[in-house]
Simulated scan of single mutants.
Amino acid sequence: MSYDIIKSLKIKQDRRIIMTKKKILTVVPMSDTYKEKLKEVSEGCEIMYSTYEDVSREMVQEANIIIGNVPAWMIGMSKNLELLQLNSSGTDAYMGVNILNDRTIMTSATGAYGKAVGEHLFAMLMSIQKKLHVYRDNQNRCDWSDEGQVLSLTGNTVLIAGLGNIGLSFAKMMKGLDSYVIGIKRRKSECPEGVDELHTMEELDELLPKADVVVSILPNTPVTRGIFGEDQFKKMKKNAVFLNAGRGNAVDTEALCNALIRGEIYAAGLDVTDPEPLPQEHRLWNIKNAVITPHISGDFHLPQTLDFIADIAVENVRRYLSGEELLHVVDFQTGYCK
């Protein structure tokens, strides 16, 4: 038997030995189809299934690979955890001290939420532009009133801060309505399909006066916190619609409330707020030109999202056990994917 064949057999044997030592915990509610796929790519591994509600600290501490957003406190610098595959694109809950050890790789579900969150933003914008939220309020009061002028759905200039998968999904929908789309990213790159201009965050303030629709899909990072404040809202058009489906703390909530009440902008559609959950006594609830949903645009409300997440998770487990490059590895310095 040749040396190369012996070496190949040894590599396969070593890989099987390594794999048998891996304990995989998933709290993502996978279908039988994806459970079978996970079993196929992790032959020899022990797979534990739980739910977000029932998972225990003991299960988390035993796992070498975790699929899903288990409570961060349960991880507590686990020495066993090698790979944490999140079911979210946001990573901020796991970026603090005493959560992940230096050996743990964290990967996100970036790419799984573009369809769901993009469609939610799109629907929210349409509702605001045609004042459907106002007429719904009137309906609840049995009030047959004419609420006056509305905005056009077509031909808008749309500024998207955070041009990842969600931003691109929303951009493509808006291009279908003959919109001019301006994207903002952290780093300059080639302008993607469906976007007319691409800029960096440093140019945000000079771009705001051009936009009819301003969309924030920014994560929670030190750089993005409070990036939309009093000055930014004053730079926007009076008929501008502001949408946020990233993180609530990208916005100074009190500044937004003031801008809405004073008529400095037309309206806001918010799936995220700061604070969150929004307290019942907060004045934002009662501002007529604000539309609020309780951070539900993503999650698993659109059934396809769960399949997208499972696809990413199974592929990353396969890659990890095969020693291949992983998808959507999180940079602990920035909170973004590398």
Score class of each variant (00 low, 15 high):
Lys7Gln: 15
Lys10Trp: 08
Lys12Asn: 15
Arg15Ser: 12
Ile18Ala: 13
Ile18Cys: 10
Lys22Cys: 05
Lys22Ala: 05
Lys22Ser: 02
Ile24Gly: 04
Thr26Cys: 01
Ser31Glu: 06
Asp32Arg: 03
Thr33Gly: 02
Tyr34Asp: 09
Glu36Cys: 04
Glu40Asn: 14
Glu43Asn: 11
Gly44Asp: 10
Ile47Met: 10
Met48Cys: 09
Ser50Arg: 05
Thr51Tyr: 13
Val60Thr: 12
Asn69His: 05
Val70Ala: 12
Trp73Arg: 12
Gly76Asn: 15
Lys79Ser: 15
Leu83Arg: 03
Leu83Asp: 09
Leu84Arg: 01
Ser88Asp: 10
Ser88Phe: 04
Ser89Gln: 05
Asp92His: 13
Ala93Thr: 08
Tyr94Ile: 07
Gly96Glu: 15
Val97Ala: 15
Val97Lys: 14
Asn101Phe: 00
Asn101Asp: 15
Arg103Pro: 04
Arg103Glu: 12
Thr107Trp: 00
Ser108Ala: 09
Thr110Ser: 15
Gly111Gln: 01
Gly114Asp: 01
Lys115His: 08
Ala116Cys: 05
Ala116Val: 05
Val117Lys: 02
Glu119Asp: 03
Leu121Cys: 15
Ala123Thr: 01
Met126Glu: 08
Gln129Thr: 11
Gln139Ala: 13
Cys142Ser: 14
Cys142Trp: 12
Cys142Gly: 09
Trp144Lys: 04
Glu147Arg: 06
Gln149Asn: 13
Val150Arg: 04
Thr154Leu: 09
Asn156Tyr: 02
Ile160Cys: 03
Gly164Gln: 06
Asn165Asp: 15
Asn165Gly: 10
Phe170Lys: 02
Lys172Glu: 15
Lys175Ala: 08
Ile182Trp: 07
Gly183Gln: 03
Gly183Pro: 07
Glu193Thr: 11
His199Met: 12
Glu203Leu: 11
Asp205Tyr: 00
Glu206Tyr: 13
Ser216Glu: 05
Asn220Arg: 14
Asn220Gln: 13
Thr221Arg: 10
Pro222Ala: 12
Val223Ala: 14
Arg225Tyr: 06
Arg225Leu: 07
Gly229Val: 12
Gln232Tyr: 08
Phe233Cys: 06
Phe233Ala: 08
Lys235Glu: 10
Met236Pro: 00
Met236Tyr: 06
Lys237Pro: 04
Lys238Trp: 10
Lys238Asn: 14
Asn239His: 14
Ala240Tyr: 03
Gly248Val: 09
Val251Ile: 15
Asp252Pro: 04
Asp252Gly: 05
Glu254Tyr: 14
Ala255Pro: 08
Asn258Lys: 15
Gly269Met: 06
Leu270Arg: 00
Asp274Gln: 04
Pro275Val: 04
Pro275Phe: 10
Pro275His: 00
Glu276Val: 03
Glu276Pro: 00
Pro277His: 01
Pro277Trp: 00
Ala290Trp: 07
Ile292Tyr: 02
His295Tyr: 04
Ser297Pro: 06
Gly298Ala: 03
Thr305Ala: 01
Ile312Glu: 02
Ile312Asp: 06
Ala313Glu: 03
Ala313Tyr: 02
Ala313Asp: 07
Val317Asn: 08
Glu325His: 07
Glu325Cys: 10
Glu325Phe: 08
Glu325Trp: 02
His328Leu: 11
Val329Phe: 03
Asp331Lys: 14
Asp331Pro: 10
Asp331Trp: 06
Asp331Tyr: 05
Phe332His: 13
Cys337Val: 15
